[in-house]
Amino acid sequence: MRETLGEYELDAETLGVGELRRYLNTVWEELRTPAGRESLKRQGLPEDIAGQKFEEFFFVEPSGAALVDPVSVLIGMLITGAGTVGKDLWKKVLLPRIEERYGKKALKARKTTEKKAGDELK
């Protein structure tokens, strides 16, 4: 089962879907190091969460809007049981790292009329 954390709009001049995936994989690999695990622990997250591959835990893919707007992406979790941990990992670790590297305008939550899991993360 998949749980969507949100639909985001990428700043095409700053960040593309492929680059976003590569960067998140790089961050994930850093979380697997002793320093990364310690960082997770300090944030109140389980150290062993990064024991999986990024693609086994999260997904990043063009959204349905990408057919018209190629810079829209869906970001979510593949393991719905991860619930709060996955949302906290996104909100406390992954999203801040993206914003730090690419700027706050690189990835913006897309406003939708439909309420989705993770909307509170916007």
Rank of each mutant, 00 (worst) to 15 (best):
G51T: 02
G51R: 00
Q52A: 14
Q52K: 12
Q52T: 12
K53A: 15
K53F: 15
F54Q: 05
F54M: 10
F54R: 01
E55R: 02
E55I: 11
E56A: 14
F57W: 12
F57V: 12
F58E: 03
V60S: 08
E61C: 15
S63R: 01
S63V: 09
S63W: 02
G64W: 06
G64C: 11
A65L: 10
A65C: 11
L67W: 10
L67Y: 13
L67H: 12
V68E: 13
D69L: 09
D69H: 02
P70D: 15
P70V: 14
P70F: 14
V71L: 13
S72Q: 05
S72A: 12
S72Y: 04
S72P: 06
V73E: 05
V73G: 06
L74G: 13
L74Y: 14
I75A: 13
G76H: 03
G76K: 00
G76R: 00
M77G: 11
L78P: 10
L78Y: 12
I79S: 10
T80V: 14
G81A: 15
G83S: 07
V85K: 03
G86T: 00
L89N: 02
W90D: 08
W90H: 03
K91P: 00
L95R: 00
L95W: 07
P96L: 05
P96Y: 06
R97W: 12
I98Y: 07
I98P: 01
E99I: 09
E100A: 08
E100T: 02
E100K: 01
E100V: 05
R101L: 07
R101S: 04
R101V: 06
Y102P: 02
Y102N: 03
G103R: 00
K104P: 01
K104G: 07
K104C: 09
K104A: 13
K105E: 15
L107Y: 13
K108H: 04
K108R: 00
K108T: 06
K108I: 09
A109G: 06
A109S: 05
R110P: 07
T112I: 06
T113P: 09
K115V: 01
K115Q: 02
K116N: 09
K116S: 12
A117P: 03
A117V: 03
G118H: 01
G118P: 00
